[in-house]
Nucleic acid binder design. Sequence first.
RNA 1: GCCGAAGUGGCGGAACUGGCAGACGCGCCGGACUCAAAAUCCGGUGCCCGCGAGGGCGUGUGGGUUCGAGUCCCACCUUCGGCACCA
Length: 811
Amino acid sequence: MERYEPHDIEAKWQRVWEEAGAFHVENPGYGARAERTFYMLEMLPYPSGVLHMGHVLNYTLGDVVTHFRRRNGYLVLRPMGYDSFGLPAENAAIREGGHPREIAEANIAAIRRQMRRLGWAIDWSREVAAHDPDYYRWTQWLFLKFLEEGLAYRKEAPVNWCPNDQTVLANEQVVDGRCNRCGAEVEAKNLEQWFFRITAYADALLNEYALVEYWPERSIAIQRNWIGRSEGVDVLFRIAELDVDVPVFTTRPDTLFGATFFVLAPEHELVERLAERSEHGDELREYVRRTAAQRGAERADVTREKTGVFTGHAATNPVNGEQIPIWVSDYVLMEYGTGAIMAVPAHDERDYEFAEQFGLPVRPVVAPADGAPPPEGAFVEHSDGERLLNSGDFSGMPAPEGAQAIVERLREQGRAAPAVRFRLRDWGFSRQRYWGCPIPVVYCDECGIVPVPEDELPVLLPDVDDYRPKGKPPLASNEEWVRVPCPRCGREARRETETMDTFVDSAWYFLRYCDPRNDSAPFDREIVDYWLPVDQYVGGVDHLTGHLMYARFFTKVLNDLGMVGFREPFARLFHQGWVQFDGAKMSKSRGNVIGPDDLVEQYGADAVRLYILFMGPADQDMEWTETGIEGIVRFLNRFWRVVLDAADGEPGVVAGPLARKAQETIAKATDDIGRRFVFNTPIAAIMELTNELSRRPDDPARRFAAETAVSLIQPYAPHLAEELWQRLGGERLWEQPWPEVDEALLARRTFELVVQVNGKLRDRLEVPVDLGEEELIARAKASPRVQAHLDGKEIRRAIVVPRKLVNLVVG
RNA sequence: GCCGAAGUGGCGGAACUGGCAGACGCGCCGGACUCAAAAUCCGGUGCCCGCGAGGGCGUGUGGGUUCGAGUCCCACCUUCGGCACCA
């Protein structure tokens, strides 16, 4: 018998698939025929280097689903692309010389080669890359739509500034006050920035989960928490000194009578005005300066002692006319609510801590239920039976009713209004970097911000001499490019020199895949409506608050613009676990990256594919070890021999124990992949079938069992499966129907009855399936092994679980 | 601090709706083949007692529900992940 030679086989079949266009799909109107479509999407790779085992897990998993769905009669769209703008290529260019484009494209070429070598069933005709002008032309086009709709705007805002990368970071790129790419401490800086008004869609992002088919609960919970919707009221406090009413947001109007001081964020516009009229003016200004400098890391540290300065002024509490002191402290955030709070130390831990620090009064206004004494510190629990106290007319009322009544009275006076606040902030997407999509606007002294006309897109990214930002964007150094006539008035104007966050590129790539060569629009609505929503999206859980939110936001906007016919882009979501090495997530910066190349070289692609999925459940983190891959190689060799040995069996014989085992395997694999979305256990099931087949070399159904095993292993080891299928006389296994369970063959005449005495296993009996309860009990009692445990004792009860077990309860 | 996930042999893991704990694989032990080794094949492998038949114990800990709990409930311990002054 010929030996199993993975390299020869894999090269052969990859050529065959390529020539047959096996995984190419056409859009409707161009030859599409299936009624059932399935859009299988995995998050596109960031080409900062070559693929590692984490990618291999991600894409192999998607590949199994692709083959499985194809063979179950779906027309499967399974495209691939590259998130090729962004810092790694730019930083590499700075570090090692060369152009970021050359670096990105070299990486793409390497990744493409790896992907082809692993035999993934990708429709290569739909490949896109974010840095390709044919792609970013439409990124720019979409930006202009958002600008037109007032969903893209500029504002000055404090930003996270990474002094090392010389760039602005999004909140999710700051981890513990440090840059998530280079680890440098993040500083505060005020800059004019571009923002997408994602907060206008906060409620839609929150409410429309109902439209998704299946997202893990935990993923929805993380996004909910990120959006952070809270309902409350805005209450006006008067500052007589300045003759202004200052709104504060509170979710606890029942505690208004407990407000003993008032706090402004250091960035609040009133602080300077108060300072002007205060004997503490210098102290206040000094405090504002200091806190501004220590935004980011230090300010985010919750455990540090609270700081603040008294302004010397007072605000009037509208519920009781009380004058309460106004303080300035950085524990109040300008970015949330109104940047001012009423402080109720008796019922808020942060306010309590501040009051302790500065010796401010604490006045309880909510009594715990059943007269229990108030706890140490702030009383923040919510439980039934709480009543108001020290609250004027409202004292004695149950807290919820009290809150309502207080709000009602303030509303009548025009001093309160219901309000909803979100933790979610607008998405700052401009970057002072070179290697990104240029923002297609021009600044004109006369006309202001002028969009570049659509027919002049794309605004091509020009070459520059130096990619280092040095405080201003690299593009600003190319004066020839920057100077441009204003599209509106023709006078000399200047181009925008900032580029877009790469999350913009990836907020719509899944739409472009559907219609990747369209040169008159980003995509055709009919075509995207045909394929989307994505039936199965697979990617890391780390993208929940970034990419996934942005992609959902884009989709909703495009829906409102009539460009797509759906509100949610991803119907089903799955997060693969991390493949770790040395106890940490693989990443280039950690230097713990294990790639597939050596393994593929040594053992072949099929072995690597099978191994990464056999290591454990795909949604759990796994520690990379190679100790088991030999076992998989052993299995594949054995599989090869056992199947070819069985080739001489009679085709079409589908009865007997081996045939039933094959049926059970079909049922298991189909359910696991199709319904449960688990990928390790089908491999175990196929191993069992293979073991059974080798143990029964003379079984009449051996040929059927072999064919079934080959067919079932095809999504995992498509090259091996195709070769064996051919040797068994078949062709084009990749388009053969997935095996179906024959229920009649699965049916059994007998089953193994488990007999327990007092819940403990005592015997197993092979009995006919059609016995009644009485008969089952009788058989159980008759067993000698059972008798030994009955010991003449009275049987008080007998539990019968049909087709499973009998449990005899003795006294 | 808050939210979430998870704890099963020497190891990765299986056991889906409460019903045979440890499938499958790694590793290890023994045997066959071989001058020998590799490869391959066969058998064994949770722990304890027993020559054996067999018995007892066993899914992080302690309780509970149930004829029956890895699975359900309560309390706790540990590990990992996310958020973190959001009023």
